[in-house]
Design a binder for these strands. Structure first.
Length: 472
RNA sequence: GGCGGGGUAGCCAAGUGGUAAGGCAGGGCUCUGCAAAAGCUUUAUCGCCGGUUCGAUUCCGGCCCUCGCCUCCA
């Protein structure tokens, strides 16, 4: 049994088979952030999801090339740049830096490629030219270029692969003021937007005059440039299904760069949204948390990560501070268990036992469209069983080493446990002093030391085998 | 109006045609000088109404509620 994933194209779970004839290399593209502001944790749910996909593919032995773009030019950014009196680069780099810091705090591996839209203007222009040559892009009088869905369809292509589309039934949204566009059909979308005064200094030269790329074309150009005209996996948040991803397909397949009937993307995977009190977390509703908000409240990045990957990626998930508090306790149990195993293994290194209940349970769950909830159940069952054995003194150092190797393997996918912190000698000395005081029944002194340790961020635990010191 | 998700214990959340994983919180217990920490243990009949079935939370039909997409959006 191998990995299966839900493909939005077929709306069903399919076995994952990479395009690579060797079955080894996997190209993965995930729509990254638009760096116009601090990203909120709803945004990060998608990136953590992509991180899990990438890590699990690594775990399965695939050679993954993970691409995440940075959208650093787009309407909102331009507006803010103008308001801020900064250059485009000055403005976006601040948020980009914050983004990567947050990504790291959430325990995400750095994507192999982090292309910037502004660095791909050349390929973007080339792609638009191809579409123009093929007659599915048209210019308007103001020097903008649009994608013609009608002509695309006439060429035998399907617009509406990711969802059931009925353009006639679509309400031409109240907020799309059609006066600002000269496009032929309401559903057509901009490939190139001609320069207007509000754009300030943000523009590039092109065969159609000064202007800037449309949002959708950026991802088509960057993904195909880095991963080729056909690649395996394209991820993103569910809100991007339409129009962004649908338009990406139209542009990329419309340019006809794929060989013999291959698709632009083989598997599309979409992550669901995070809810806050039953409503979509979003900037416009103002009901969002940023990671820095949560860190400032004393939560750790890995706790947020844990909460994000406690539910299946295709389920909307209700985010609450209450549950975030619970994440700390839950992770603490895993830490406690593995730390005891580490002590018992006494530095012995073993190979993982892939027939163990933990590993097989984990793989079975994850192979099934990344069922993380079931995977966690396997992990916590293992914790409980291990604790039972530990309590019964039934674990020798060899077994402990194997258990640990099993866990380390799984943690490489989940990414929630970071290296343990060893108590410094000063702390250990205090612990010893306290132990001496306890022996002399000087409980006043021993309690005083306990408070002192606690103030320094360490808790002491009196066990039948003596005291243990650990991070609070 | 069109399309697509959901409704499972106080909260979060898996899953299955044969009486329901896991986490948090709560209860009980163990350990302890007292604590804390830790550990063990315990808690549901699955939105409503019909149908199919020996048997449905799981399949079918209807209803109610809710969320999202259709417009920038992870």
């Amino acid at each position: 049994m191998g990995l299966s994933v839900f493909n939005t194209l077929s709306r069903s779970v399919e076995p994952f088979v990479p395009l690579d004839p060797e079955g080894e290399k996997v190209g993965l593209y995930c729509c990254g952030p638009t760096v116009h502001d601090f990203a909120h944790i709803g945004n990060f749910r998608t990136f953590v999801f992509a991180d899990i996909v990438r890590r699990y593919l690594d775990f399965k032995g695939f050679k993954v090339r993970h691409v995440m773009n940075i959208t650093d030019v787009e309407d909102k950014i331009i507006r803010r740049v103008n308001e801020s009196n900064k250059s485009l680069k000055e403005y976006t780099s601040k948020y980009e830096e914050a983004f990567f810091n947050d990504l790291e705090a959430l325990g995400c591996l750095m994507p192999d490629d982090r292309p910037h839209a502004t660095k791909f203007i050349g390929p973007i222009i080339e792609l638009i030219k191809k579409l123009e040559e093929r007659g599915i892009a048209y210019r308007t009088n103001d020097g903008s270029v649009y994608f013609s869905i009608e002509n695309y369809r006439k060429g035998g292509n399907c617009y509406g692969q990711l969802l059931n589309l009925n353009l006639d039934e679509m309400r031409p949204g109240e907020r799309v003021s059609s006066d600002e566009y000269e496009k032929e059909s309401i559903a057509d979308f901009a490939l190139w937007k001609s320069r207007v005064t509000e754009d300030g200094e943000v523009f590039w030269n092109s065969p159609w005059g000064e202007g800037r790329p449309g949002w959708h074309i950026e991802c088509s150009a960057m993904s195909m440039e880095l991963l080729g005209p056909s690649f395996d996996l394209h991820l993103g948040g569910e809100d991007l299904v339409f129009p962004h991803h649908e338009d990406e397909i139209a542009q990329s397949e419309g340019a006809c760069l794929q060989c013999d009937g291959q698709k632009f993307v083989k598997y599309w995977m979409h992550g669901s949204h995070l809810l806050v009190e039953g409503k979509k977390m979003s900037k416009s509703l103002g009901n969002f948390f940023t990671l820095r908000d949560l860190l400032a409240k004393g939560f750790a990045g890995r706790e947020v990560r844990y909460l994000m990957i406690s539910a299946h990626y295709r389920e909307t998930f209700n985010f609450t501070l209450d549950n975030l508090g619970g994440a700390k306790t839950a992770l603490g149990r895993i830490d406690e268990c593995t730390s005891k195993l580490r002590e018992l293994s006494a530095g012995k290194i073993a190979s993982p036992d892939n027939d163990s209940k933990l590993v097989t349970g984990f793989i079975k769950a994850m192979d099934d469209d990344l069922n993380v909830s079931a995977a966690w159940a396997a992990v916590f069952d293992w914790v409980r069983n291990t604790n039972r054995q530990l309590a019964a003194e039934g674990i020798d150092n060899n077994t402990a080493a194997i258990e640990l190797a099993n866990w380390d393997q799984i943690n490489k996918v989940l990414g929630i446990q970071i290296a343990e912190q060893k108590p410094p000698s000063e702390i250990l000395a205090l612990a010893e002093e306290r132990q001496a005081a306890r022996k002399n029944k000087d409980f006043a002194r021993s309690d005083q030391i306990r408070d002192e340790l606690s103030a320094k961020g360490w808790t002491i635990e009196d066990t039948p085998k003596g005291p243990r010191v650990k991070r609070a």
